[in-house]
Amino acid sequence: MRKLVLAAAIGAAMVPTITLADETTDADDAGWTGTVEFGLAASRGNTDSETLRSRLGLATANERGKHEVGLAFLYGEQDGVESAYRYEAFGKSNLRLGDHHQLFGSARTERDHVAAYEYQSTLAFGYGNQVIQTDTTHLGFEIGPGYKWSKRQDVRIHENGAVVRGNMDFGHEFNESTSIYDTFLVEAGEDNTFARNDIGVRVKMTESMALKAGVEMRHNTDALPGRHKTDTLTTVNVTYDF
C-alpha cells in the first residue's frame, strides 16, 4: 500500500509540474503539446484491491513531420500483495511524403512483472497512410519491419528476432465535448505475436481537463503454463491537456 500511495502522489504532482513546463515552452515557441492521465481505482470487501494508472504523452509537428514520445505506468495491489506492475516508454517520428503518406520510425520498450513476458522492446520503421483526415475524424494505418528483444516471465528464455509491426489509429469527435478513440498495435514475430487494442470515450469538462473511460486488451500468442495470454484493463482516468 505504501508503494501505491507514493506512486499516486508522484502522479498527482505531475500536473502542476507539466503546466510550468508548458509556460516555458510557450516562451521558447517550441510547439510541443501533450496530455497527462491519472486514474486510481480501489475496492473493499471480500477482496481489497487498488490499481493506479498514469500516462504522459508529448508531441510536436511541423510541415515536415511529427514527433511523439511518452511514458506509461501501471501498479496494482490485491490484499496487500503486488498484483500488477508495468511501465512503458515509447517514441515515434513521421516524415511526411504528401498529404496522406509518410514514413515512420518507432521505438517501444515495456517491463511487466506479471504478464506472459517480463520485457519486450521493439524498433521498427515503415510506411504510413492517413486514410481519413477531417476536422472531426481521423483514421491512419502503419506497417513495416522491425526487430524485437523479449524475455518470458520466470525463465531465462530470450526470444530476439525480426517482427512485422502494424498500427491503426482512429478517432472521431461527436461534438465539442465528446469523442471516441481506438488504437490497435500488433508486433508479429516467429516466436510470439503481441497485440494491444485501446478503445474508449473522452468527455471534456473544461478546455484542458476531461474524463476518459476505456478498455485496454493486451494479448500474447505464446505464454507459459499458468500465465494468461490475454490481459484486460478497464479504466476511468482524468486527463489534462497542455
Rank of each mutant, 00 (worst) to 15 (best):
E176Q: 13
V155Y: 08
E110W: 02
R156F: 00
T24S: 02
G105E: 00
E159R: 15
L185T: 09
M205S: 02
R218N: 09
Q102L: 13
D191C: 01
Y119A: 10
L185W: 00
D48G: 02
F174V: 11
E173W: 10
A162R: 09
H101Q: 08
K66E: 09
E142V: 02
N220C: 06
W149M: 07
M168K: 06
V15E: 12
N129E: 03
R86G: 05
T35N: 13
T136C: 04
K3D: 11
L58F: 12
G57K: 13
Y240F: 15
S179G: 14
L224P: 08
L6W: 03
G166E: 08
E159H: 03
L58H: 04
F104R: 14
F170Y: 15
Y240I: 00
E110P: 06
A30M: 02
E50Y: 02
A8W: 09
L6E: 07
E88G: 12
I132R: 10
L56G: 04
K212L: 03
F242G: 01
Y240V: 06
R2H: 10
L224M: 04
E216N: 02
A41D: 06
R2C: 08
D231K: 15
K66Q: 14
E23G: 04
W32V: 01
T122H: 00
G91I: 05
D28S: 02
R227P: 03
V236L: 07
E187T: 03
F90E: 11
Y85L: 12
V215I: 13
L6S: 12
F141L: 14
G171N: 11
A59W: 02
F104V: 08
I180W: 11
A13G: 15
D198W: 07
E77A: 10
L40C: 05
G214E: 09
S150P: 00
A84Y: 04
A13M: 06
A116T: 14
H67I: 13
I199F: 15
Q153P: 09
F90V: 05
G140R: 02
P16Q: 11
T183S: 10
A213S: 14
G144R: 13
S54N: 07
N237C: 02
D231Q: 13
A13D: 13
R111G: 09
R165N: 08
G128L: 05
T136M: 07
G80L: 01
S93Y: 09
G34R: 05
Q120Y: 07
R53T: 04
L20V: 11
K151V: 07
R165Q: 07
G65K: 00
D231G: 10
G126H: 12
F194D: 08
E88N: 05
K66F: 05
G128K: 10
D241H: 07
L211K: 10
I10D: 05
S106Y: 03
A116W: 06
A9S: 14
T232N: 01
T134Y: 00
A9P: 01
T235N: 07
T33F: 04
P145D: 09
E142Q: 06
A8G: 12
V201P: 06
G140E: 12
R202G: 03
L233I: 05
T136Q: 14
M205Y: 01
E23K: 03
A116P: 03
V215M: 06
V155M: 00
R165W: 00
Y181F: 15
T60N: 02
A213V: 04
V201Q: 12
G11N: 15
Q130N: 08
Y85T: 06
H158C: 07
F184W: 08
G98F: 10
G31E: 03
V5K: 11
K3L: 13
R152K: 05
A7M: 06
